[in-house]
Nucleic acid binder design. Structure first.
Lengths: 264, 264
DNA sequence: TTCTGTGAATGCGTTCACAGCT
DNA sequence: AGCTGTGAACGCATTCACAGAA
């Protein structure tokens, strides 16, 4: 760090921002993605502790319940601020609040779900939305036969009302629970209507502008990743004398493969 | 690298494995996790190309449809072998086969779903299981009122039969779609019965032995991550003159917070 | 010329280990 | 004495950029 920065900043090493950045900000907004992805896990653990009336907790104990190691947890929380007390630990209630605030859960977010099939209904009925913070404002579908159905206290609306719903209900997050073929079109309409966060359950890669966040949840991808590891475990089960034989046959193309460009 | 290693290895830098490892293996099994997680996406794109009768594809084009950049795609595929042709691209059919084989999809995996609520039924009805490779062998529930229900051609069985089902159906992957409170117990029973891959939809951290793989799918975590980014976008919308005022109030504890250990 | 495969450079995330506060 | 907060080291993942095959 330069001598200039040292003399300007409150205490050395507190601020990671390059000296060229002169914008004052509410502490360091540059929280690593990996940390953001774990904050909800910490929050859930903290809420459970809170309900059980536990007033403080050490990084070691909280890390155990959250399924991470304590160094990682401390580093993660340090990105939010110095909210612990050395020699003691973290105040549970206070930390619940700080994490909630950082995640934006001190305000409510309205969610619209498109697709009132099995999955859409499951999502709409899923009550415990991260202990509040989210409100299912609408459930939409293209099929006239399901429009009007009552699901989780909501009446299913027709997809053609999407733009109106986004406007009227101030939808922040769009959830896509449609068949793959419809997903991109629904996404486009969400984006066009001004939605900038999309949660996609359809097995397709969505194309969106840079300012739109998409997260995907994909059952078959998860199963395939598990299958990969399962296969690896099984491979390990065979004795070393088998490996060579396996290797000899492993590259064989399946019955009916084209003349292969096997270049090695 | 030591002089010893340099003289022993076939060619410099070709082999990443430590010289102590002498086990011959079917090419390099050490495929990075990040790569494994993307292979299903590539596979889906390739299958779509295959169905459309497209014989070859460049890394650039395949990367675009998979939503990654081409350098990453080429590096990923290079972990499987040299399956491309310089100046041409990849043979679609051949690559479909190689990726499928790497993921373990040339064999079938039996899956048991525990929890026949909205989500469990949605999963059971979800037909396109990554274009085959997986077979829903059983759907189990603890509620006597739903046991016997027909879902996706399966009769819901009682949870007490879990061990028998795992044995009889040779279950490789257990899916947990129960309420949070039941998840750990179901998981323990899966593990005890010999299942070593678990896909968990319940909002809890599961404790399992090291040899068991767990992947979790958590709706509310996904929403919270989106909320974080949504909030950040909104923060950016206010002019710089607001930032300081926001900063002054940002740390205020909520109404009813305990006397805070605010240490700074 | 075109496009793959891959070393090298860079960046990000995790873990270690300990200074410093309570 | 106990526990947080954090530099420093490390390892993994991504990106760059180009040698070399077709």
């Amino acid at each position: 760090m330069s001598a200039l920065a040292e003399s300007v900043l409150p205490t050395a090493d507190q601020e990671r921002t390059p000296v060229t950045s002169r914008t004052p900000r509410p502490r360091d907004r540059g929280i690593p993605e990996a940390t953001v992805a774990r904050l909800p896990v910490y929050l859930r653990a903290l809420q459970s502790l809170s309900e059980r009336g536990i007033p403080t907790i050490s990084s070691e104990a909280l890390a155990t319940t959250a399924g991470v190691n304590s160094a990682k947890l401390r580093k993660d929380l340090s990105h939010l601020g110095s909210y612990g007390t050395r020699g003691v630990g973290y105040d549970v209630e206070y930390l619940v609040y700080q994490v909630s605030r950082e995640l934006g859960l001190t305000q409510d977010w309205s969610v619209a779900i498109v697709g009132a099939g099995n999955l859409g209904r499951a999502l709409a009925n899923y009550g415990g939305f991260g202990s509040r913070g989210f409100r299912i404002a609408a459930l939409l579908d293209a099929d006239p036969n399901v429009v009007g159905d009552k699901v989780a206290g909501l009446s299913v609306r027709h997809i053609d009302t999407l733009e109106n719903v986004v406007e009227a209900e101030d939808i922040s997050i769009g959830v896509i629970a449609t068949p793959a073929a419809a997903a991109q079109r629904v996404c486009d309409r969400f984006v066009e209507a001004g939605v900038t966060s999309v949660l996609n359950f359809a097995p397709v890669v969505l194309n969106v502008p840079d300012d739109v966040d998409v997260r995907k949840v994909d059952l078959s991808i998860e199963l395939q990743i598990l299958a990969f590891h399962e296969q690896r475990k099984a491979d390990g089960d065979v004795g070393p004398e088998w490996i060579e034989a396996l290797e000899a046959s492993a590259d064989d193309p399946p019955r009916g493969m084209p003349p292969t460009p096997r270049n090695i």
